[in-house]
Amino acid sequence: MANSNLILIKQFCVLHDIEQNFITELNNYGLIEIVSEENEEFLLHEQLPHIEKMMRLHYDLQVNFEGIDVIANLLEKIDCLQHDLIRSHNKLRLYENENS
């Protein structure tokens, strides 16, 4: 493998004991990015935690691909909202200190 940031999909599937079709479907739903090089398909290293999370949702909780798509979007929104909440809390503290 020329690029150490890439993980061979075949190898990933063997290690995790999953069908390659699972990765293909995630790609079809636009949930991950597949990199093709020299007739081989790879995953990006930084995507691994995200893919492993989707594997748990699918295999452990029986969530289908549409469900995974919805969950991924909602979790992203929760993440943004949590950041906003922290920022707002800090801003509120600024004004509370001003008035105290």
Binding site: H16, I18, E19, Q62
Partner: peptide, 12 residues
């Protein structure tokens, strides 16, 4: 948990 997953019996 893996018992319920069926296929990934020895998964990491």
């Amino acid at each position: 948990m893996y018992g319920s997953a069926g296929k990934r019996t020895q998964a990491k």
